[in-house]
């Protein structure tokens, strides 16, 4: 049966598998050697050195770029530190100004309060004195009115008012 198939299969020679047709082996081996030699030549002379150089060049570029990036990063960190420092300084300065202003205000306030206290004390002393005066004069008036009234009453009762006695009596009464 197999032989029938093979007679159909045009050029195939006796064995059924073309792979086992030894008459073609020499041909294949020859052309394979040519092909492999060509590839080997192309690879070892042109392709591999070129790719290796491209790869190492890229490696170099990448290393350089990484170094540059590290550099820039360090710079950025420095700038950030400087910025932070400036910020802290400014904050401290502001604190200081606020404290100074507070102290100024406090001292002004204290002075004003002291002045106001002094004025108040003065005013109250004056008023005190005025009140004392008024009280004094009111006492005098009471004394005079009491003497006069006592003299009038004594004379109305028919006695002769003795000024000294009346005065002494009124005084002792007022004091009592």
């Amino acid at each position: 049966m197999a032989t029938e198939t093979h007679s159909d299969a045009a050029a195939a020679s006796a064995p059924g598998m073309p792979q086992l047709d030894f008459s073609t082996f020499g041909n294949q081996i020859f052309w394979l050697l040519v092909a492999l030699a060509a590839i080997y030549f192309v690879l070892s002379r042109m392709a591999l050195p070129r790719i290796a150089s491209v790869l190492s060049e890229r490696q170099g570029t990448i290393t350089n770029d990484i170094a540059a990036a590290e550099d820039l990063k360090a710079k950025a960190l420095q700038a950030e530190a400087a910025y932070d420092k400036a910020l802290a300084d400014a904050r401290m300065e502001a604190q200081r100004i606020i404290a100074a202003a507070k102290a100024d205000i406090q001292s002004d306030l204290d002075a004003a309060i002291a002045r106001a206290d002094a004025q108040i004390a003065e005013k109250s002393a004056e008023s005190e004195k005025a009140i004392a005066g008024i009280r004094e004069s009111a006492m005098e008036n009471v004394k005079i009115v009491a003497r006069d009234t006592a003299k009038e009453i004594v004379s109305a009762l028919g006695g002769k008012p003795d000024a000294k006695t009346v005065n002494a009596a009124v005084d002792s009464r007022l004091k009592g």
Partner: peptide, 26 residues
């Protein structure tokens, strides 16, 4: 004919496959 695709044929006509003949394998 699953094996026919593996047959080695001379590229430019003829039947003889000598060691130098350009074939479809070539």
């Amino acid at each position: 004919h699953p094996m026919d695709q593996f047959i080695i044929k001379p590229l430019f006509g003829g039947d003889a496959v000598n060691w130098y003949t350009p074939t479809n394998a070539t």
